[in-house]
Every structure is written in C-alpha cells, then in structure tokens.
Design a protein around this nucleic acid. Structure first.
Lengths: 64, 64
DNA sequence: TTATATTGCAATATATACTTTACATTAAGT
DNA sequence: ACTTAATGTAAAGTATATATTGCAATATAA
C-alpha cells in the first residue's frame, strides 16, 4: 500500500526524503519505506510527518 | 499523554476495553495503555480503532 | 457477603518498527 | 565521461510495540 499522498505533499514542500527525515528525526530509509513499501509507522512519526508537511493525519494517513 | 478522546468515543459506543480490543484484533492491555499510558500505537492500529469507533484519525489521534 | 465486569498495572516473551551500513540505479549538471 | 543528488533496496542489529499471564482494586448486582 504505497502512500502517494505523502510523496505528493513532500514534493509540494520541495523536500527530499532525506530532508524530511531529518526534520522528523528518522532516517531516509524510514521515509522511503513509508512512501513506497508496506510499512506501518508509529503514530508519533505520522504526526511529526504531517506537521512537517502542513497536513493532518486524515489528509495523509487515513485509510478510507 | 492520556487519550481522553478515545476513551470518550469508546464509552459512547458502549464498548468495554476488552470488546474494542477484540474488534480491532489486539489485547485489552494494548487498548488500556493507549488510553491511559505513554503509548505510541501503530498507524494500522489507529486506523482500526477509528473505524471501530466511527471516528477519523484527526478526531482521535491528531496532536494539535 | 459473594460473584462478576471493568480497569490499572506489572514482568517476561515475541513481533516488528527503525537504524546502520552498504550497494545500485536514475537523472541532472559540469 | 564524470560528479552529485535523489531514490530503491537489502542484511543485520537495536529499540520498542504488542502479547501473555497474572494480580489487585473498584463498582455493581444477586
């Protein structure tokens, strides 16, 4: 289950995976796997990512 | 960081911690610790809980 | 009182998120 | 052609989410 919304939001903010990773305090690989792979991030990390991308949880991580 | 919103939503649905746990596929302790303790649940679990409680991620897990 | 349901709180065990390191590919720039 | 930035991926290690079991406390009901 790729997270395309997150990738789009990140690119809109002109951030590379590495830059976003540094902002939220994880490694580039973690960001990459959330975007492309089957990953199940923690709530804290989801919140941090959303704040960095100026989005809310529902906008990026809600599974309808 | 207690999650009072989750507890309120659960009680509104007339569910015990154990009943909610069964619905979302975890143990009672996990639900209990999310509500009362310092816990950092996974995104999948957050989504499952929200669906069981008829709420969205923002309504229960968003940290403003 | 006695029984039952609900919840809080531990200790130990297991599954998995996340790190670290590394290598490969692609695209853009010089 | 060479370099650099950005990304995908994989193996092994560490940190932590979650399970399991169990005990205690409270509230409610018979």
């Amino acid at each position: 289950m790729k997270n395309k919304k997150m990738k789009i939001a990140r690119v809109e903010m002109d951030l590379s995976q590495e830059q976003l990773a540094k902002v939220v305090g994880v490694t580039r690989q973690t960001i990459g796997m959330i975007e492309t792979g089957n990953y199940n991030p923690s709530l804290k990390l989801c919140n941090a990512i959303c704040k960095a991308l100026n989005k809310t949880l529902d906008e990026i991580f809600w599974e309808s």
